[in-house]
Design a protein around this nucleic acid. Structure first.
Lengths: 239, 239
DNA sequence: GAGGTTTTATCCTTCAAGTCGATAACCTAT
DNA sequence: ATAGGTTATCGACTTGAAGGATAAAACCTC
């Protein structure tokens, strides 16, 4: 490469990306965008774009996502990791900070024609290192389902235990027992019954009680479960 | 600010930082450096520096750390988060990616005169947002002590259960029972007895058996503990 | 060998989590 | 209305990880 004092190669470009998940049709799906730019023109990739002056990373990813979905539907957004492999973008030196976003299952945001939901289990070939990012995001989500209340972020305001069970099954990738799910989430005080029941428009069966998450922002419910004396455990009942 | 087409304000500067922990004198301590540059000249801050062309983030932090400690002693290094608050550096627009590094308790690397260990419980005033980063790193470490084998990274090659207990106590910040620690780590197959005993140069007492970690790289041992049917749990015995 | 010290094994309790079956509460069809 | 189907919920039971307490083991010094 010829030396060029104007070239900005002493500073990398910085992109932001989001892995936006929603449970749709009983499967965990991710929002993908069909690129209209080189490199990887025409390939599926994660939504995002360049970090621009005056934005924090989170503000930037929200701004870029706003072009794809109604960001007011985003119930959770957290930073994953920053990728810096030198050859992750074949054209330029570019870092990328990835975010995990969640959308509740009861909304169906309008999408531009170049943007679609794809089941995480059947991903197409993705541009850049995006396939690995999606899988890392899925693992992060699965972990947090076990020790936080993150379920609130992909569940509707109110729901029955059966509905919640399907959401957990889709996200975790294995069967989940209604009985156990209810007991675990109730014992941790993550769920509160609304007192109402689902009006049964179905073909029979006992009407299900409706629940909602006690708190609709992230809280840790099981951290330091191990090697902690029991009196300390009681403390986390607070808040 | 006057508009300057040569200014590179369309791309942020990018720094790398490391929170390097070691258990010293029974306390969790962090490696700090006394700044010799503005801003925050003279204040204590995390070691690190600018990301330079040709380096990944991890290569960059290793390079910067090499000026402070013998990086061969670093038994663990993982990315924490990337900070992007617009006013985190009062002078320039700068992102920073923080890393968590660990050093075993049985080495005492030579340090430059501007670099010192500080107990995490008694931090001096730190430059930038570094105090928050240190606390976030400590929390990450504490969490991983519960569900991974990360203890290998601050323990010597071989050790007695009592020695390991002191390390865990310092890192976790609360009492840890030897009996329980041994039982938990053995059940999870994280520890293997070496078969040898510590030659007793002490004032008496039964000689302690020496153990070492079965694996000296990070492995998850308790992920998805909840809502997972027991037959699935058996699978994670693999690897 | 008595007494002190530290380590380690054993027994016990507690409790989160998971399974299974019984009961409850609706529906529809006869 | 009532029998039978369907879904939801509750309660009893089992399992297993985790923590506490005590006793035994294995060294030391005097």
């Amino acid at each position: 490469m010829v030396y060029d004092p104007q070239a900005k190669t002493d500073r990398p470009a910085h992109a932001v990306l989001a892995v936006v998940f929603q449970v749709r049709d009983g499967a965990l799906q991710v929002l993908l965008w069909e690129r209209a730019l080189d490199p990887f023109n025409g390939a599926w990739s994660l939504p995002g774009g360049a970090l621009s002056a005056g934005d924090t990373l989170e503000a930037s990813i929200r701004r870029h996502l706003a072009a794809k979905v109604d960001v007011r539907e985003l119930t959770h957004l957290e930073q994953l990791e920053t990728l810096s492999d030198l050859d992750r973008n074949p054209d330029v030196w570019e870092l990328a900070t990835a975010y995990l976003g969640l959308i509740p299952s009861d909304v169906d945001p309008a999408l531009p024609h170049d943007t679609r939901w794809h089941p995480v289990d059947k991903l197409p070939t993705l541009a850049f290192d995006h396939a690995a990012i999606v899988l890392a995001a899925r693992d992060r989500l699965r972990g947090k389902l076990s020790y936080t209340n993150i379920g609130f972020a992909f569940a509707p305001e109110t729901f029955t235990i059966s509905e919640l069970r399907m959401l957990y099954r889709a996200a975790l990738g294995h069967e989940v027992s209604s009985t156990n799910l209810q007991r675990v989430l109730l014992r941790r005080h993550l769920l509160v019954p609304t007192g109402t029941r689902r009006e049964s428009g179905r073909a029979g069966g006992r009407p299900a009680a409706l629940y909602s998450f006690r708190l609709r922002r992230l809280e840790i419910t099981d951290q330091f479960a191990v090697l902690r004396p029991p009196d300390r455990r009681a403390e986390q009942q607070q808040s």
